[in-house]
Design a protein around this nucleic acid. Structure first.
Lengths: 265, 265
DNA sequence: AAGTGGTCTAGACCACTTT
DNA sequence: AAGTGGTCTAGACCACTTC
């Protein structure tokens, strides 16, 4: 209602935190636009778990009243959250916290497609789940200290019965207490859905490094290919709110009949 | 000014074409929102070359007057064009047609980064430019007929003096008449900048398929590696306005000291 | 000072979903 | 009918750039 920016954000509580949180936004700060402050407040509710994946968040009019701003301002804040895939708008129904349950979301993070034919659901085989101390490199990528507790998972994915992907996954131990091989093996659906539902950790973004490597040792055995077969190696670091790394995943992809698909724009 | 949607678009000319062009947007069409119709009109001006890469387009107020709608509606249309990287907004200056000259743009399409150290400008060596008849597979990917004229380019890119990428590029002959090895070799800057400046063909989007392959024959010679060295193979189809393919590029990347970087969100 | 994009408001109406 | 997000308007003021 009042765009007076000498008063950072005319919201019920946590006003100064709001503009502080916005200091993330790089520029010569002072005061961020109202809609960015509101976006930061909404993001806090997402991050804190106050609004959980799949849940309905308050309506635009409700939020506008709560923050004492116009609906258009709330709308712009939510627009950006939707553009970042943190929430999903549904006309007539409301705005929902995004979740890894949705099919569309799954294929944003599973980039392997068959050269011919339709996409198949992979069959997962969990080979190993262990608790370890983080090696130096793993610790660095997960922003932990070397020796901190981590969970190590090795799994094999098959498409149409053919072994295609071996993955080694490293998780911060403190975030995933109680994760067992049994729990992983019995869970149907994407692993990230399990993480957000059972452990309250939602992956929202990831950064990957791809290279070509030669198959060797256990990897070639699991994929049932000769040593030295070219494999696509993918190292992924997944992040949750606040750029916090929550998963390191190293995958070896057999790309004889499949390819990694990427859109540039 | 008048949101009466029984009259598809209250714009000076080409009204019906606008809503026809919008039929692209999938849904149970009938009438697209005003801002989408305006977006389509603006896109026509981009596609036709009326507004060229790097040029200033008319201001929001000017366009609002021209189309007889409010500034907010034009604004939303331009917002979407900016989100698709077709135009670039500059506060205080105006809105410009996007160009491949800008540094930021270049790294959207050159994904190879060094494992350590800073990004280097590649040194290009054009090995070969020929006019050929399109093989069946090339024709299919470029939406041509087999046997149509195409231009074939082979080049080698070196980083820090080390041969790193071999690329074979196929272009529709009718769009790139007069493209010679000399012209390519002497041009400084990204190839896509040459294409848009000299041939009026602007690449706006691309689709890539990645896989791991073994080096062989001429490729291994050019990269100075043993046969069977794992290489990252990248097949890219580049599109211009209207989803029209304008380039097929097949690259072999030596990823010993470099990786292909990708952000998932 | 004038022009551009960027933010914000207040209110209207539309399209869709649920009750 | 009521509530939600989606579109559109008209006007105000701000931040930045240029003249």
């Amino acid at each position: 209602m009042n765009p007076d920016l000498t008063d950072p954000v005319p919201a019920p509580a946590g006003k100064s935190e709001a503009s502080a949180a916005n200091a993330v936004s790089a520029l010569p700060p002072v005061y961020a636009p109202l809609y960015q402050q509101i976006k930061a407040l909404l993001m806090q509710s997402l991050q804190s778990g106050k609004w959980k994946p799949g849940e309905l968040i308050p309506s635009e009019t409700e939020l506008a009243a709560r923050f004492k701003v116009s609906q258009g301002t709330v709308r712009k804040a939510i627009d950006e959250l939707a553009a970042e895939n943190l929430v999903v708008r549904r006309q007539g129904k409301g705005t929902f916290v995004a979740t890894h349950e949705e099919e569309k979301v799954q294929f944003r993070f599973l980039r392997l497609s068959p050269d011919a034919g339709n996409r198949l659901q992979p069959e997962n085989r969990i080979l190993e789940v262990r608790r370890l101390r983080a090696p130096a490199e793993v610790a660095r990528l997960l922003a932990l200290k070397a020796g901190d507790a981590v969970i190590f998972i090795r799994r094999l994915q098959c498409f149409a019965g053919a072994p295609t992907i071996v993955e080694e996954i490293w998780l911060p131990g403190n975030l995933f207490k109680g994760l067992t091989l049994e729990r992983l093996a019995e869970y149907k659906g994407p692993m990230y859905a399990l993480f957000e539902q059972e452990f309250g950790t939602r992956m929202i973004r990831a950064s990957e490094k791809l290279r070509a490597v030669a198959a060797e040792g256990r990897i070639s055995e699991l994929l049932q290919v000769d040593a030295a077969t070219p494999l696509l190696h993918v190292e992924r670091v997944s992040l949750t709110y606040g750029e916090q790394p929550v998963e390191l995943r190293r995958g070896w992809y057999l790309t004889r009949d499949y390819h990694y698909h990427n859109e540039l724009s």
